[in-house]
């Protein structure tokens, strides 16, 4: 079992990694998008790739908005009784890198948002996502009627993307949460950003295709690459309503995961 001190240092190191290294599957998607694009959009994607390289070689954060840290803590059998101690260590580790590390203090008081679950797993898993507010500001919730059709859901997502236009740094990753309560759907849509693996289900593929008819393009300058990936996470639905939450992740959709 990790001591609180070593846990705090582990969290701090992972937080620094989170803001300066992009997950490889996303970097690959951006690189492919550049190869398949032209004109201004191609130029924008090229600059984004230069930036990814600059951050990797210098350790300077990819984006100055190092965000609000949103964390999913899944307490396994090894730590189930120690949730409080671990939560405290995460808070301190995240504060440490804001006080003396390369992260910007963007909040009135540095405090990560932590979702804690007791899992049946042997190990304790942590997912950390720095949520920048250029994209977080474009988060949407729709309370839809029971029996809502897929087409209507896709139209809602399309409408949200049209409202966001080029503001939250496209090309985007889309996180969708459907079902549960309003708050559960929003949480799921945020988690979906972290879980996006670019392997699309038929529904996610439909959302992706429709979204890319919008023409917003990388950097909002017009083009075919408005959205690179879509992930849907679901919860059982109440008989009287279906919450749909839409999280738009900027191209710099940062996430780290590690075990304790």
């Amino acid at each position: 079992m990790l001591t609180e001190d070593s846990l705090r240092r582990k969290v701090a190191a992972e937080a620094v990694k989170a803001v300066s290294l992009l997950p490889p599957p996303l970097e690959k998607k951006i690189s492919q998008a550049r190869e398949n694009s032209e004109g201004l959009e191609r130029k924008v994607l090229g600059r984004i790739l230069e930036n990814i390289e600059a951050a990797e070689s210098s350790g300077v954060p990819l984006c100055q908005d190092t965000g609000v840290f949103e964390v999913w803590l899944r307490l396994g059998k090894n730590t189930a009784s120690e949730g409080r101690r671990i939560t405290e260590a995460i808070l301190r580790g995240v504060r440490d890198v804001h006080e003396s590390g390369p992260l910007r203090s963007s909040m009135s008081d540095i405090k990560p948002v932590i979702h804690t679950e007791i899992s049946g797993a042997d190990e304790t898993g942590v997912i950390m996502t720095p949520r920048g507010f250029g994209s977080e500001n474009y988060t949407f919730l729709h309370m839809l009627p029971p029996g809502v059709e897929e087409d209507e859901i896709i139209e809602r997502v399309y409408g949200d993307l049209r409202r966001a236009a080029g503001r939250p740094c496209p090309p985007y990753v889309l996180g969708l949460g459907i079902g549960g309560t309003a708050s559960k759907a929003v949480e799921l849509s945020a988690l979906a950003l972290a879980e996006c693996d670019f392997e699309h289900s038929p529904f996610e593929e439909r959302v992706l295709r429709k979204a890319n008819t919008l023409g917003t393009g990388a950097g909002g300058v017009g083009g075919a690459h408005t959205v690179l990936g879509v992930k849907l996470l679901e919860f059982p639905r109440h008989i009287a309503g279906v919450p749909l939450a839409v999280h738009i992740g900027c191209w710099c959709n940062r996430v780290v995961r590690f075990f304790l």
Binding site: S20, R47, I48, E50, N51, V60, P61, D65, G134, G219
Partner: peptide, 8 residues
């Protein structure tokens, strides 16, 4: 400016 390109 290119969004998200803080390191660049």
């Amino acid at each position: 400016a290119y969004g998200g390109c803080g390191a660049l």
